[in-house]
Simulated scan of single mutants.
Amino acid sequence: MQRQKAGHFINVSSVAGHQIGPDFAVYAATKHAVRAQSEGLRQEVNPTTSARR
C-alpha cells in the first residue's frame, strides 16, 4: 500500500466497542481494541489528519 500510495483497511467491530453492558466487559474490550487499532493505523498512514473523524 505504501508503494502504490493507495489501499484500504477494513476492520469489522460491533456496537459493543461504543456501548458496554453488564456481563459483556471482555467482549466489549475486544471490540474497543479493534477501534483503537484502526485509529492508530489511520494516524500512522496519514498523521496530518485529525484524530477525530
Rank of each mutant, 00 (worst) to 15 (best):
D23K: 15
T30R: 06
I20H: 12
R35A: 07
K5W: 10
N46C: 09
A51N: 14
I10D: 00
A6H: 15
A36W: 01
A51E: 11
E39F: 10
H32M: 08
V12S: 05
G7R: 06
Y27A: 05
R53D: 10
T49I: 15
N11H: 13
T48D: 14
R3N: 12
K31C: 03
V12A: 07
H18D: 06
H8E: 13
S14E: 01
A25P: 05
R53F: 15
F9Y: 13
R42H: 08
A33Y: 10
N46R: 13
S50I: 11
S38D: 03
S50W: 09
M1A: 12
T49M: 10
F24S: 10
L41R: 09
G40Y: 06
G40R: 02
K5E: 12
T48M: 10
I10R: 02
R42Q: 07
V15P: 00
Q4Y: 07
F9V: 15
K31P: 01
A6R: 15
A28N: 01
A28S: 05
G7M: 03
G17E: 00
A29K: 01
K5T: 02
P47I: 03
R53S: 12
S38H: 05
S38A: 08
T49Q: 11
Q4H: 09
A36D: 03
E44R: 07
F9R: 00
G40N: 08
S50T: 11
N11K: 02
E39N: 11
Q43A: 12
P47C: 02
N11W: 05
A16Q: 01
A25V: 14
S13D: 04
E44W: 06
G7E: 03
Y27F: 08
E44Y: 07
A29P: 00
A28W: 03
V12Q: 01
E39C: 03
H18K: 11
V45L: 10
Q2T: 11
P22F: 09
R52F: 12
